[in-house]
Amino acid sequence: MTAQFKKGVLELCVLVLLDKQDFYGYELIKRITDKIEISEGSVYPVLRRILKQGYCTTYLRESTEGPSRKYYHLTDEGQDYLLELKEEYEKFTRGVDSLMKEENNE
């Protein structure tokens, strides 16, 4: 459950970031690991999954330093999916919050 849960939340984080702008893998991972403690490697499976499901596309762009980078871009389906996930997540956290409040009142 916990691993499953983390995976779901991680997917949400990736989609939220990609909704703002295109990222290449390393940058995206840094953004996430700045805020959440996860192993960096676990982001790549999420990226591949959303790529295979058509929620994002990739393109290569040359960089001034080092090799060309693989950028991820959110598709329209990805945006729809993100909205759905967000809604689910908010419903979920609202539920957990209210449960915790009930606990405190007892």
């Binding site: 960096e40 490697g41 676990s42 499976p45």
Partner: peptide
Amino acid sequence: RSLGSPQQIAKDL
């Protein structure tokens, strides 16, 4: 070290 276990990553993949 920060990437984590290759086995776990492979499992996710």
